[in-house]
Amino acid sequence: MLDLSPTILALVGLILAVYCIPAYVRAVRSPINRIPTIGPSGVFTSYYGVLKSIWSANEMVQEGYEKYYGGTFKIPMMDRWSVVVSGPELYDELRKGADDALSFQEAGNETLQIEFTLGKGVKEVPYHVGTVRTPLTRNLAHRFPEVQDEIAASFSDHVPAKEDEWLSLPAYATVLQLVVRTSNRLFVGLPLCRDPDFGKLNIGYAREVMKSAFILSQFPAFLRPFFAKFVTNIDTSVQRAMRHLGPMIEERLEREKQLGSEDPECPSDLISWLLEYAPPEFRTVYELTTRVLTINFAAIHTTSMTFTHLLYDLAAHPEYAEPLRQELAAVLVGDDWSKVVMTKLLKLDSFVKESQRHSGSNACNEHDSSCPEGYHPFGWECGSQRELHQFSFAMSALG
């Protein structure tokens, strides 16, 4: 019988030599050791803090805030330390940090394990960020009527009005359905935005990405490429999305080949905007489909969480409902929704900002009237996203 013990011992020794020992040396020498820790801070004892943070993260953050307000503290996570800063001075310093020192893009890449969960191309050539930052934001104003139409239609389908009768619905699950349709009315238009399978695909894709990212973060970095093969399922999702988007993308590519980029009949949607920024090697059905899924991932759940928090906060503070309704009634003339109307909803803007500040989900800097450019790791700027939150919330408030 073959004795594997020498082989196993050699493999363990190799892992210790290549990963564990260098990792230990880096941990001991790391300048992050000078930052106060909530929980154990030793190289090995900190893993007890990791387990504690799973169940008591809120309590640990509160403890750190009370002990070190105006400074920094750290909390252990499985694959890294989470450093928390507090106080207006450090907030401002953080906000002004240069991209080569503090990169939200890189933080997003690391947290979401983007190379494995969304694809290497999304990480290394993020041209979709420019797409969202410029043409999508630029076209948001004149697409307001379509967004308004889709909000009304999706509310009618998923939150049907019942006269003199309460309707019980799961908040987050219902909001997801509203948001996926409204976002994709802007992204891909009718009739695809109302396709149940396309909506289900985008909602499920985001959940799979988050689940896969969490699982991969539990492994050492050098093992992630191996385990990613078993944990992630990017290709299956992209192939499924291609059944919906493929014909549309192929038609757009053919029109561009025949008429050039200045086609006056070219629809103003996400595919056209992606083609405006895509490098030649990324102008394929597969790659463009991946970017549509990626932008949906960035938009749907963050918007849905924010909208859900807004509903909960309004339910918890019903005294704000009437002032918000009065502001809407004073500003809105008939059904003439526009970006100009949105800029006049100062109370609503304040309510949205305060809800974001308390919920912490994709919240903007409370000390700044607008988020830094590229605040979101996928380029969805806070200002534009907040406008959609206000728009949807305002329409729901008016019924």
Rank of each mutant, 00 (worst) to 15 (best):
K120M: 07
S154T: 13
L140E: 00
E124M: 10
G130A: 01
K123L: 10
E150A: 08
T137H: 03
F144P: 00
P126Q: 04
F116C: 08
V129T: 13
L136G: 01
N139Q: 05
I114T: 15
I114W: 07
A153Y: 13
D100Y: 14
T134Q: 06
N139I: 00
D100T: 08
E115I: 08
K120L: 07
D99V: 15
I114G: 08
A98V: 04
T134P: 00
E106W: 12
F144A: 06
L112M: 15
H128Q: 09
P126E: 07
P145L: 03
A141V: 08
H142P: 04
D99C: 03
E150I: 09
E106A: 15
E110H: 11
E146N: 15
V129C: 10
R133C: 03
A98M: 06
V147Y: 01
V129H: 05
G121T: 06
V125Q: 09
Q113W: 02
A107F: 06
Q113Y: 05
A101E: 11
A101N: 13
D149R: 15
L102W: 12
A107T: 14
K123C: 10
I151Y: 01
K123F: 05
L118K: 07
H128N: 03
F104A: 03
Q105W: 14
K123G: 05
H128K: 05
S103E: 03
A153G: 05
L118N: 12
